[in-house]
């Protein structure tokens, strides 16, 4: 799917997908709210659900404009609206680190970041790390050290690892383990991940 289908030009206001998205949000919200509140409350709540926020955000170096429901996370915006599915949804609760991206150069959890708060900010995802066909040293090191098995946590691990090196928190195995503790790997590739970070650090500096 081309990005033109999904992203507004910033002038027409609403794209086809936005309209569909908003309609779905209203349809889903109404019965949920009606179940717990009086009819008057639900009608105002539904009105609120139709509200959208226009966000201009630089993603991997390209300025994008998206119109989003204010409840939508950066994670869902990247995956569902911008087609950047490299960022993974693990727990969706800020507990596993699979959704780690960089916002304004710092590693954050995209599942706990509302897209509406990223207006005028810069987001880097796993898709933005490589330089053309040349992998980022951290990506290369994860491959060479077998720092993954199933791979689901890997993009979060790599985004976090790049930041850990840039933060200067990779001086020892123990410091790397502590700095990377917010990225869970169910396959338990931790020793290989530590080795990969140590390798990449030498190239990054």
């Amino acid at each position: 799917m081309s990005s033109n289908d999904e992203v507004n030009d910033g002038q027409s206001g609403l794209s086809r997908r936005t309209v569909l998205g908003s309609t779905v949000a209203v349809a889903v919200a109404a019965p949920l709210v009606a179940g717990v509140a009086e009819a008057t409350a639900s009608s105002s709540a539904v009105a609120a659900a139709a509200e959208t926020v226009s966000v201009r955000v630089k993603v991997n170096g390209t300025m994008r404009t998206v119109v989003v429901d204010p409840r939508v996370t950066l994670l869902d915006t990247l995956r569902e609206r911008l087609g950047l599915t490299g960022t993974k949804k693990g727990c969706d609760r800020g507990q596993c680190g699979a959704c780690t991206v960089h916002v304004d150069g710092e590693r954050v959890l995209s599942c706990l970041t509302l897209a509406a708060t990223t207006d005028q900010r810069e987001v880097t995802t796993i898709e933005g790390l490589a330089n053309g066909d040349r992998l980022h040293p951290m990506q290369q090191a994860f491959i060479e050290r077998d720092g993954l098995q199933c791979g689901f946590c890997t993009s979060g691990q790599i985004m976090s690892a790049v930041a850990v090196v840039e933060e200067g928190r990779a001086h020892s195995d123990n410091e790397i383990k502590e700095s990377m503790s917010g990225n869970i790997c169910r396959c338990s590739c931790y020793p290989a991940i530590v080795e990969a970070i140590k390798d990449a650090q030498k190239v990054m500096r």
């Binding site: 680190g97 954050v108 959890l109 706990l112 930041a163 933060e167 990377m180 503790s181």
Partner: peptide, 9 residues
């Protein structure tokens, strides 16, 4: 506290 990502946020 928390993790590096959460402390940044």
């Amino acid at each position: 506290s928390a993790s590096g990502q959460l402390r940044n946020m």
